[in-house]
Design a protein around this nucleic acid. Structure first.
Lengths: 126, 126
DNA sequence: CTCCTTAATAGTAATTGTTCCTAATAAATA
DNA sequence: TATTTATTAGGAACAATTACTATTAAGGAG
């Protein structure tokens, strides 16, 4: 059995996503981390972002405008992506349990889902 | 005022997405169209896919596994993406009108949304 | 129908996001 | 403290997409 090791690089990547709290991309995480740990490489950031997502410590919320965004909040919520400023907003709303119904009705083994809206945020719509 | 011109290339791209009906990527559309019109270039396929999406004649349903998928069905439905076979399935289900509520409650001008599930399809889960 | 404007095209180069590769490093266990 | 091997840095490779430029052709005006 392979052991998951704790490295400062992995911790820095995880901390960055939490501290940025802006649904950052790998590039944005790299920019944030390289300040504190200049020798880190981009490959390390990419690798840790996907490993942390697999472990359930981060959430890959999908690819918007060409790059994958990550979220430190792994509990269920939706997102709103502004087409103008490209910002990703959290939308905390409860959708009824159609998800459970879907699971049972269609025979799909659902491991995750992504609900996102696009349009213009209050700032950009004026 | 710029005039949108009708070209055979644009029509072929639109037809391809309809005829394939498998949520194709730009690459898959190109492979399909180049048979009928060998001189078409990939840039033309990419350009027309994004223009047709802007015009509302196609739907960009998001980027899965590294490339954007398009749908000829522009009416509301969800998708299920199998993590194993990478197939995109249509899920026709009605979510209650939380979308209208969101629109009014948050001040976001919602132009579209995307709800997709990932996991294993019935074929792959056994 | 013919001419003219310019949107759209073909072909290719460039860019961007991401993954792969390899030798060196450093966690974790014995 | 020594050993194993997961992880790293750095750069090359790759794949999806966009940008660029000369050429072509759609469609409105005359």
């Amino acid at each position: 059995m392979t052991v998951k090791r704790n490295t400062i690089q992995r911790q820095l990547v995880l901390d960055a996503v939490c501290e940025l709290a802006s649904h950052p991309t790998a590039e944005q995480v790299y920019e944030y981390v390289v300040d504190k740990h200049p020798s880190i490489s981009k490959a390390t950031v990419y690798r840790n972002l996907s490993m942390l997502s697999e472990y359930g410590e981060l959430l890959n919320i999908g690819s918007f405008h060409g790059s994958i965004h990550y979220d430190h909040n792994c509990s269920y919520h939706c997102h709103f992506i502004c087409e103008n400023c490209k910002q990703v907003f959290d939308i905390s709303t409860q959708l009824p349990n159609v998800f459970d119904d879907l699971r049972e009705m269609h025979g799909f083994e659902i491991k995750g889902h992504s609900l996102s809206f696009n349009g213009l945020c209050p700032n950009c719509s004026t």
